[in-house]
């Protein structure tokens, strides 16, 4: 039997970038410390050696400039892939992304397009405290004209990034710091994981768990534990948050009658609210046997202290606790 080829999430992203750049000279990278440094998390390591400084562009610390440079280049025939070093700093790019990239096509009557991808790592768990641990994906979900992608595995990271770069719209591509070193099967040849296809990553009959990013492996770990107790979770990873493919979620809830949404971002105003609303407004409503619940980040900035940081966002234990309650009717 041939060995299964494994890469880390970071390596999978890098392989995708390399293949895209080899295939299409319009593709280039732009961001802070992505050249000789290889990116703060090493995703672009080695690419400047292969493609040179003209296609792997180190910028000054200017996040509005990075976003704008991507937009302008995309409008005029290039396929830029920008990197924002930590998702937190995208707050400095917001005007360009929200008021320009997202709106250009519509405002100009559908005549222009902005085929760009902006990659950025979100999330806590590294002790980087309140200004380097944000999970702001839902800010973008709220903006018509943007697409939002959030892979949870190396396989999806590679295939979704390719789909994002080939897409003709501005795509916000949210990675997770704690996922970069996780390993999984990744085929060498280029492939696409289509945008806007939610995936059932584990089948089960008792409770539908919709999880994003780092919460997918945590939910799967919880599912393993619960299986020993006879509780079977069905875990769904939306992978693309916007435009959202909600059909598999609704189908699943019709089967299980119970739903829990898990994400790292703060609960209030978070993506979970959207999922809950979609379930409640769908035909799955008639099948519900329990309230639909969310498990998400506390309504606080991410603390520095390791223990506080750990307790600020959902962990395997909290998923276990919440899932048991819902399945046993102890809410």
């Amino acid at each position: 039997m041939p060995e299964v080829r494994e890469l880390t999430y970071a390596e999978a992203l890098r392989e995708c970038l390399r293949q895209l750049m080899e295939e299409d000279e319009r593709v280039f990278l732009i961001g802070e410390d992505i050249g000789v440094y290889g990116g703060a998390f090493g995703v672009t390591a080695g690419l400047i050696e292969q493609f040179g400084a003209e296609r792997v562009i180190d910028t000054p610390i200017s996040e509005a400039g990075i976003a704008g440079a991507c937009i302008g280049a995309a409008l005029t025939g290039m396929r830029p892939i920008g990197e924002i070093q930590f998702m937190d700093f995208v707050t400095l790019s917001m005007e360009q992304l929200v008021l320009q990239a997202a709106k250009v096509r519509f405002m100009f009557g559908g005549k222009a397009s902005v085929p760009m991808v902006l990659r950025m790592p979100g999330g806590s768990g590294t002790g980087a405290a309140a200004q380097h641990s944000e999970s702001l994906e839902n800010w973008f979900v709220h903006v018509p004209g943007l697409k939002v992608v959030m892979p949870s595995t190396p396989y999806d990271a590679k295939g979704l990034l390719r789909a994002a770069v080939l897409d003709n719209n501005p795509v916000i591509f949210v990675e997770h710091k704690l996922l970069y070193k996780t390993k999984g099967h990744v085929p060498e040849e280029p492939y696409i994981v289509p945008l806007s296809q939610s995936k059932v990553v584990r089948e089960g009959e008792h409770l539908t768990v919709v999880a994003t990013s780092i919460m997918v492996p945590r939910a799967l770990q919880a599912a393993e534990e619960l299986a020993k107790e006879g509780i079977e979770l069905e875990v769904i990873d939306p992978r693309t948050l916007k435009p959202l493919d909600d059909a598999p979620i609704i189908e699943s809830v019709k089967k299980t009658g119970r739903a829990l949404v898990v994400h790292e971002a703060v609960e209030m105003g978070g993506f979970g609210g959207e999922i809950v609303a979609r379930i409640a407004a769908s035909e799955a409503f008639d099948y519900l046997e329990a309230p639909i619940r969310r498990l998400a980040g506390l309504d606080i900035p991410i603390p520095y202290n390791r223990e506080l940081e750990y307790h600020a966002v959902p962990q395997v234990e909290s998923i276990l606790r919440e899932a048991r309650k819902l399945v046993r009717g102890e809410y």
Binding site: L92, A129, A130, H132, Y304
Partner: peptide
């Protein structure tokens, strides 16, 4: 313990803090 190395502030001494951004 909420701020850490990057965010030390000493408000009583009018040190309005280190910034991570």
């Amino acid at each position: 313990g909420r701020g850490g190395s990057m965010h030390i502030a000493d408000i009583d001494a009018n040190n309005l803090g280190a910034n991570g951004i």
